[in-house]
Design a protein around this nucleic acid. Sequence first.
DNA 1: GGTTGACTAGACCGACTGGTCTACTATACT
DNA 2: AGTATAGTAGACCAGTCGGTCTAGTCAACC
Lengths: 202, 202
Amino acid sequence: MEPSLDTRTRILSTARELFHGRSYADVGVKEICSIAKVPKGSFYHFFPSKQDLAMAVIDDMAEDWAHGFVAEAFDRDLPPLERLDYMIDAAYYWQKAAKDIEGRMPGCLFGNLALEVSTRDDVLRAKLHAVFQKASARFHETLDEAVEAGVLAPLNTEATAQAMLAYLEGVILLAKTRNDPEVVRILGPAIKTLRIELAAEN
Amino acid sequence: MEPSLDTRTRILSTARELFHGRSYADVGVKEICSIAKVPKGSFYHFFPSKQDLAMAVIDDMAEDWAHGFVAEAFDRDLPPLERLDYMIDAAYYWQKAAKDIEGRMPGCLFGNLALEVSTRDDVLRAKLHAVFQKASARFHETLDEAVEAGVLAPLNTEATAQAMLAYLEGVILLAKTRNDPEVVRILGPAIKTLRIELAAEN
DNA sequence: GGTTGACTAGACCGACTGGTCTACTATACT
DNA sequence: AGTATAGTAGACCAGTCGGTCTAGTCAACC
């Protein structure tokens, strides 16, 4: 019916894998095409430019992410603080699985892209920023719930949520640099100790 | 006397600036040469390859770093926990200054390179890993001292030191993605709240 | 004063880049 | 049946990449 959609999807998922496993600059349009078995003409039929492809890849990944293990980790049926552990666990197993298959820890696609492109492509930077905003919102909800449930002393939940996201990204960065997912398992759980207090307004 | 040393230095510092401000892949040998006003022949006289240049840049930066504001931040005359605040402050002012001049937050050269190259260049990855090890050792000493001085309850100082480094990198990553150094100032101080407890051995 | 070797100089190399172009096919509507 | 359109196909483009090569300069040493 829609072989076009198929082609587009094939480009998208190939690009996603390659960008994640290597980097944006290191993967060329030609390579994506040859692996996805799509001629160049078709590529530029679906995506006006490599940058547009990157935007689509980010959207695609963010979508999967939000509906996949992140949705599970932030499951409202779990006690709020356990969701944080679940999140760390998920990150660990994902990175470990990837390393077992590919031999290398790919890290976080968003973090990778953010550091690579954000000084020279404001459009992509803004998109990545939006993804991080959304991710931090999940932490934010969780923390609010934890405070409301009385399992966490009141604190600046918004800032702490951002701190937690930063910590997660930092841990993955360190783990990737060591090419060792165990770093995530060891350092990860400390995410729960991060606190930014409410500004004193007395 | 030694115009050669001058040339080498000029290549090195130009490359450092460009790599830091953009990325490894995005900066070509030709551009480095033309900005440093060095012909290509001279470049390859001093550096066998672009990769070797990157190694030298990392060494150079790590050296400056260790003897520069990091040495100040981890000054043994400061109370241990204050050193952490000093470190965050230094990171903030550095990024802010860079942004005021260039318009963009460059982030941390080591973190940038780590995420960009560590999946495809094990030599550079190992070097970056060593730099992070050294940085985390400074945190480690500081925490040990703090525990000894009784200003910090006993904890797993080694793991916590790594967690703090990860957090610092993560905060800089987030700030760079927002192109806003204020993120460092707001989230940074929470570094002191990170704790990884000693493994219970009862 | 001749020779050596560090260094400068930049033309040049094949490979590859993102992107364009034209030619062609297949399907869908009129 | 005829035409428009979506998509396939890949040759081709100018430009750039990291790296090599040859030619030549210059100072130090014999």
